[in-house]
């Protein structure tokens, strides 16, 4: 009985904390949702009006009436989809080698790779853009990258800087490092090769890590603003983040529409998160040793 009471008390405490933290973390977001449904005159009332007196969808209608958001969504999905798949495979493969295999130059190569992430994008931007423009045999370029515009204003050009993220390699390496050695030994006894061990033992065990990587790559590529801005030159190649720009002019922000559009643009990333986080439900013991 007292154990049950203790358990119930514990539940109450946990939910209280969960809800309290939700208020702090979620209030600004809730504000966005409510703002997007408020008539203009209530947006900046003081003291703030939390619950709109009338719900209006005018901001949603305005946000999507004029701009070609369906096209932007398509572009963003193409770029992000390819990026996620590419990263999942290449980052985990390299991460496995760095975490679990012994080879000459391992630490030097790893640190060198990591070093490339320590240079701010603003000074890498111009060389990166030139290399996309000079990409051989694309967009009218010859073998030496002369003559055309390369991958500028193409989907491949948009995804190029995201295809392999060194942070992803680092992430997978750290997770693979924390997997107990016994599991590898067991696989080796079964006669699995390195690739077999990676593919059949490590990948299935790393669902939480792979889900994390997907979420990371997805939001990184989805939320990128600077690169799409620089590399696109036609309206048809724009991504959703560029679409958000039009709600801000020099002096004012079309606040209601911006909130509405931001929410809609954020939805896919939230969906990916909710979808991905269900892989965070079981520990290694149940899938690995006992399985």
């Amino acid at each position: 009985m007292s154990y049950k009471r203790h358990k119930a008390f514990q539940q109450v405490v946990i939910y209280t904390v969960l809800i309290a933290v939700s208020v702090v973390m979620g209030a600004p977001f809730l504000w966005m949702v409510l703002s997007s449904l408020k008539p203009n005159h209530e947006l900046f009332a003081y003291p703030p009006v939390w619950i709109p007196s009338t719900l209006t969808f005018e901001h949603y209608i305005n946000a999507f009436r004029y701009t070609d958001f369906s096209r932007y969504f398509l572009n963003s999905f193409i770029v992000t989809g390819v990026t996620v798949i590419s990263n999942l495979f290449f980052c985990s493969l390299a991460g496995y080698a760095f975490a679990r295999m012994d080879f000459y130059g391992k630490n030097v190569i790893f640190m060198a790779l990591l070093g490339t992430m320590m240079i701010p994008i603003h000074v890498r931007l111009v060389p990166l853009f030139i290399s996309v423009r000079r990409f051989p045999l694309a967009g009218g370029n010859n073998l030496f990258g002369q003559g055309g515009t390369g991958l500028i204003d193409t989907h491949l050009g948009l995804m190029l800087p995201h295809l392999i993220n060194i942070f992803g390699v680092f992430l997978m390496r750290q997770f693979f490092q924390s997997i107990p050695q016994e599991l590898t030994d067991a696989a080796k006894i079964d006669g699995a090769g390195e690739f077999g061990t990676y593919w059949r033992i490590f990948l299935p065990l790393s669902k939480p890590a792979l889900a994390t990587l997907s979420i990371f790559v997805f939001s990184g590529s989805w939320d990128d603003f600077l690169w799409p801005l620089v590399v696109t030159s036609s309206r048809y190649m724009r991504t959703v983040q560029l679409g958000l720009q039009i709600f801000q002019s020099q002096f004012t922000v079309n606040w209601g529409s911006l909130m509405a559009a931001t929410l809609v643009v954020t939805l896919p990333v939230i969906t990916i998160f909710i979808f991905g986080q269900k892989y965070f439900v079981q520990g290694i013991a149940t899938t690995g040793l006992k399985g």
Binding site: F280, G283, I284, A285, T286
Partner: peptide
């Protein structure tokens, strides 16, 4: 969270 999931029970 993903790290916690990796700790054997």
């Amino acid at each position: 969270l993903a790290g916690l999931q990796g700790i054997p029970l």
